[in-house]
């Protein structure tokens, strides 16, 4: 079940990235292509098979997991910039790119890297679950590592959320509002990852998987939908009828 979810997410994200290649070549919104490419890479690195293969090639020290965290940071940062710019959410834009946003980004990145270096990370294991259980010293460290890794995406998502809520209730075209709703849902899902340590143990890994992947899917489909809306009634469409016309 989880495997299916993982591979479909990978396929969806990869397809959207591929679909953006022509416009990226033309130089139109190239960052969007990079965002989708980064997201595809992140999903690839969170699936067991590819993760182990890549990490072994990198020395079996779970460096791939560190890369995964930083790739997510980069993707969410650019995503935040594009979305806040697009929706004209200057407050959220400032929260992400301003001094506070940069401080959060720097702090979480440093924490992730530092904690990673402090751990004994031998032995490729997706999500570093095996690393956590191997020795007692690693267990608290890996908790901090995970928390820092979730903190930055959650920060950006929370900054996005009010702007998305405004867009959903606005008078924008329906497809854009549905897209904004999906982006908002994705933001909520990412924010929920903050509370992973407090989930009842019997929810197990499934709840976390579902939340993580629905967040990614919501973001991908939301952006794809907005892009599609742009194609449908973007440039070629006539301006909306004014009431002076008869």
């Amino acid at each position: 079940m989880i495997e299916i979810l993982q591979w479909t997410t990978l396929a969806a994200c990869g397809l959207v990235a591929l679909a953006r290649i022509p416009s990226a070549v033309r130089g139109k919104n190239r960052t969007l292509f990079y965002i989708f490419a980064l997201m595809t890479l992140a999903i690839l690195l969170s699936i067991e098979g590819p993760y182990v293969a890549i990490d072994r090639a990198l020395g079996g020290l779970n460096v791939a997991n560190l890369i995964l965290r930083l790739v997510i940071f980069a993707a969410i940062y650019f995503l935040g910039i594009r979305i806040t710019r697009g929706f004209g959410a200057t407050d959220a834009y400032r929260l992400i790119t301003g001094r506070i946003g940069m401080a959060v980004l720097g702090l979480t990145s440093l924490t992730v890297v530092a904690v990673f270096l402090m751990m004994d990370t031998q032995g490729s294991s997706v999500g570093m679950t095996a690393v956590a259980s191997r020795n007692a010293a690693n267990a608290p460290l890996i908790a901090y590592y995970g928390a820092a890794g979730r903190a930055y995406p959650a920060y950006v998502s929370l900054a996005l959320l009010p702007a998305m809520a405004r867009a959903v209730t606005s008078t924008l075209p329906v497809l854009v509002r549905v897209g904004a709703f999906l982006l908002g849902t994705g933001s909520v899902a990412v924010a929920l990852t903050l509370f992973f340590p407090f989930y009842p143990p019997d929810w197990g890994a499934t709840a976390k998987f579902v939340i993580n992947y629905s967040a990614v899917l919501c973001f991908v489909f939301g952006l794809a939908l907005i892009g599609l809306a742009g194609l449908l009634y973007g440039k070629s469409a006539p301006r909306p009828k004014t009431s002076t016309e008869k």
Binding site: I226, L231, R239, P240, S243
Partner: peptide, 24 residues
Amino acid sequence: TLGRALRRQEHDQERTDKIWENLG
């Protein structure tokens, strides 16, 4: 009333244009 409606439309158009400029 007409002016208000037109202004609102233009404002909405500007906003959607901006969305597609950044996310299209």
